[in-house]
């Protein structure tokens, strides 16, 4: 009997036969994300080493750290791409991220923006936003999907927000680098996630584009909780109040930008003294 139960549990294909409800997100304690004692290693190399991180609801948290500190791996763990060797990851009080697949995590309300902008280049800007729209994403619902007026409004609204209204029928592949970054942020907005993971959004951007991106991100915070991985210190300073420094897969320091910058360990890691 147990065996059957386990089989049914692992079986993921028939999920589209069931109503697609995500377990209730419970943030009654004020914290949205709990990462506890997480470790993961590749070929003996410890990418994440006993990491502990707590994110409050509505917070905009910046994660900084030198290359190889485990920032991207941490995001992989939160979004289900990588499974940790040990530790636990909870979204709110009730959702265990380690038991869920990538699409389930996305449906539960965690959105991710990749370091390299990845939009669907062979589809229009509009279709890109349509695809990331929140809602049921089962096979048959998708097959029969029609737009409601409010959904069209939402897409229009987001198009305005990211400034791509003119380009709505353009193929995403034809956009400039900065526009792609914005489109990707727009896709996150369509997803309407509780938690946003943003990986180096301003890499390779001009200053103007950077400012625009900063505005976008700031407007997101509050309504959404944002975790931002970034190298550009000025950009981080302009945005966040809480900063976490990762080093060799664990938290080195946490605090405001000023606190962190005066932390001796951080200085040592960054300047190698």
């Amino acid at each position: 009997m147990r065996l059957i139960e386990e089989f049914q549990h692992r079986e993921k294909v028939f999920d589209f036969m069931m109503p697609n409800t995500s377990p209730a997100l419970d943030v009654s304690k004020g914290y949205l994300l709990y990462l506890e004692d997480i470790s993961v290693s590749f070929d003996g190399f410890k990418a994440i080493n006993n990491l502990n991180l707590y994110i409050k609801e509505g917070e905009l948290r910046c994660i900084i750290g030198p290359n190889g500190a485990g920032k991207t791996t941490m995001m992989d763990i939160i979004t289900g791409k990588t499974r940790p060797d040990s530790g636990s990851a909870w979204f709110g009080q009730k959702i265990n991220l380690l038991e869920m697949s990538e699409p389930e995590i996305a449906q539960a309300g965690i959105g991710r923006k990749f370091q390299k902008p990845t939009v669907f280049e062979h589809q229009t800007v509009f279709a890109n936003l349509e695809l990331s729209m929140a809602g049921a994403k089962g096979v048959f619902t998708t097959l029969m999907a029609r737009f409601s007026a409010s959904q069209l409004d939402h897409i229009d609204h987001v198009l305005n927000q990211i400034g791509l209204k003119q380009q709505r029928n353009l193929l995403a592949g034809a956009l400039s680098h900065g526009q792609k970054q914005w489109l990707e942020i727009g896709m996150l907005l369509m997803q309407n996630p509780k938690l946003l993971l943003v990986d180096e959004p301003v890499a390779g951007m001009t200053h103007q584009e950077m400012d625009r991106t900063g505005e976008l991100l700031s407007s997101l915070a509050g309504e959404h909780t944002v975790i931002l991985v970034e190298h550009d210190m000025d950009f981080v300073r302009s945005l966040a109040n809480q900063v976490t420094v990762l080093h060799q897969g664990s938290v080195l320091a946490e605090g405001t930008m000023d606190q962190v910058q005066s932390d001796k360990k951080v200085v040592q890691v960054y300047l190698g003294e």
């Binding site: 990538e102 699409p103 990331s132």
Partner: peptide
């Protein structure tokens, strides 16, 4: 065009 990206916006690619 981008399988893993599709997963991250919530589609069960397998299905």
């Amino acid at each position: 065009d981008a399988e893993s990206r599709t997963r991250f916006i919530g589609y069960k690619v397998e299905n």
